[in-house]
């Protein structure tokens, strides 16, 4: 998996991103850019498909979402994103506390509401899976409209972070495509004995998976202090911020759907971008801070041991 943290992105990854968006010719290949600097060159393609998906989703969920719940949840997620500098400064907790699990609390409220109204099943039914084209078209849509940048800027993502976040999603489309809706499993895996009901819808996996990771960090970081370094924790905090950023996009899309203030196209694109960001955030978290090799770990017999 390619990493979205700006300092780890090389020229090839920048080039791949621009090519996927179809704007490689508009920007100096490999050069530094931001979502804002490529906004005007990015053309939203696949609008009809995105609109169609969004329309079906809106029709099925009409009236079931409660804007106030989602609004409160999104505001809570924004508040938690404000705490990221505090979390980064704390790093490894000295005792098992709640600093990390508190990050997830507003997200659980959003998740619970979406489960209650059957949102995730409906989203999986109507939204395309994470194919390369769907991911790219969704990205183009939210980049060209400026929606993504605007929402992420609201909650503390600077231009560099916003760009890196979207690059991570687009460049990892092959990895994202492995998070498949169960209905798309190969034919030979289907049959009367098939029991797919235990596999949650993919957007549910994206959101609730992120929340579980956040919930477990207080204990895990405390347990593994002898392995962790400042660098590992710093990377991990970036991943935590990414998961919360994805959750904020997802929450904003559902809130605006509840209020009737989002277009069908934007709804599809923003939900896809939010889910994909949460997926990549949790995958990177596991890589960056949880699975620690001997070359990455703190020295054995160090001060803390």
């Amino acid at each position: 998996m390619e990493h979205y943290n700006d300092q780890y992105i090389d020229e090839n990854e920048r080039r791949d991103f621009l090519k996927a968006l179809g704007v490689a010719g508009s920007v100096g290949v490999g050069g530094k850019f931001t979502l804002e600097s490529i906004q005007s060159a990015t053309t939203a393609g696949g609008a009809a498909e995105l609109e169609s998906m969004g329309k079906a989703l809106r029709q099925d969920l009409s009236g079931s979402l409660t804007a106030s719940v989602l609004s409160a949840g999104s505001a809570g997620v924004a508040d938690q994103l404000d705490r990221i500098p505090e979390i980064a400064a704390m790093g490894i907790p000295e005792e098992v506390g709640t600093a990390y699990s508190e990050l997830a609390e507003p997200g659980w409220a959003i998740n619970e509401h979406l489960l209650e109204v059957g949102f995730y099943s409906t989203a999986e039914q109507h939204l395309e899976p994470f194919t390369a084209s769907h991911v790219a078209e969704s990205a183009k849509s939210v980049i060209s409209s400026g929606t993504l940048s605007g929402l992420l800027a609201e909650v503390g993502f600077d231009a560099s972070e916003r760009t890196a976040l979207m690059m991570s999603v687009v460049n990892n489309n092959a990895h994202l495509s492995k998070w498949m809706p169960i209905e798309l499993y190969p034919d030979e895996l289907t049959g009367e004995e098939l029991r797919p009901e235990f596999v949650p819808p993919v957007h549910h996996r994206a959101a609730e998976g992120s929340l579980h990771w956040l919930d477990g960090l207080d204990n895990w970081l405390w347990q593994n202090g002898v392995l962790l370094t400042d660098d590992l924790v710093s990377k991990g905090v970036s991943d935590i911020k990414a998961m919360l950023g994805g959750l904020y996009l997802f929450g904003a899309a559902t809130e605006q759907l509840a209020r009737g203030k989002i277009s069908d196209k934007e709804l599809s694109a923003l939900l896809t971008a939010g889910s994909a960001t949460m997926i990549m955030g949790q995958e990177h978290l596991a890589d960056d801070m949880i699975r620690i090799s001997d070359t990455e770990r703190a020295p054995r017999g160090g001060a803390s041991q």
């Binding site: 593994n224 392995l227 890589d287 054995r300």
Partner: peptide, 25 residues
């Protein structure tokens, strides 16, 4: 090696085997 009363890690040993592409997806 963890503390029995808390489960907190105190030591992860040197690897007794050769690690090759460990944790690669």
């Amino acid at each position: 090696t963890v503390e029995l009363d808390s489960g907190r890690l105190v030591t992860r040993s040197e690897a007794p085997l050769q690690k090759i592409n460990h944790f690669m997806q």
